[in-house]
């Protein structure tokens, strides 16, 4: 795993006219996992998009060393293509060689993406992130729609990513069971 670091300095996030968050500070070293917790609408997803560099913070700065991967509620797979074919696009784009986490998608290879269930879509999204071999993972509600078995698998994959020197930031309203997980309660950063 390439060296990585993710630092948030006094981040503030605004959506429209509303200030959602302010004063978000943290510094993550390799192996760190951070749980952004808080109720719906508090700004978890917006904060992740700011960390990913897709949105500008209203104030503060993000310092990221290492490539960033984002797994959110979008599924960048063509709905009409079979799952295996759709996943292959990203594997070829990223260059093969990533350690493949098993999300039980092999049996679904022939199924067009638009026919996948909510849980299967989530597993495909997690597999995309896991295959992209980036050190910094940003996950938005990674356990949504997964059954008990796959919740365990997903957390194990995140844990092993951190154990091998990666960083994971997880936005979720659900409790997470990860070793060494720090929790950032965003409710404390509401203005």
């Amino acid at each position: 795993m390439q060296p990585c670091r993710l630092v948030a300095q006094a981040l503030a996030c605004r959506r429209g006219d509303r200030l959602l968050l302010r004063g978000v500070d943290f510094a993550l070293e390799p192996g760190a996992a951070l749980h952004l917790s808080g109720p719906n609408g508090i700004g978890k997803s917006s904060l992740l998009r700011i960390l990913a560099g897709l949105m500008r913070p209203f104030a503060g700065a993000v310092i990221a060393e290492g490539a960033i991967g984002l797994c959110d509620d979008h599924l960048p797979l063509d709905g009409h293509r079979p799952l295996a074919h759709a996943l292959a696009f990203w594997r070829r784009l990223d260059g093969a060689g990533a350690a493949r986490a098993d999300f039980g998608l092999d049996d679904l290879g022939d199924v067009p993406v638009r026919f996948l269930s909510t849980g299967q879509r989530k597993r495909a999204a997690l597999a995309l992130l896991a295959h992209s071999a980036v050190p910094i993972w940003l996950l938005d509600e990674p356990l949504n729609g997964l059954d008990r078995h796959w919740v365990g698998v997903a957390q194990a994959v995140i844990a092993s990513h951190c154990a091998s020197g990666g960083i994971a930031v997880i936005a979720s309203h659900q409790p997470l069971d990860l070793p060494g997980l720090a929790v950032l309660a965003l409710a404390e950063h509401c203005p």
Binding site: G53, L54, L70, D72, H74, L75, P76
Partner: peptide, 14 residues
């Protein structure tokens, strides 16, 4: 469709 699917986000991250 590609904005809805998050394709441009993923390409930007790369």
């Amino acid at each position: 469709p590609d904005i809805e699917g998050g394709w441009f986000d993923q390409w930007a991250l790369r």
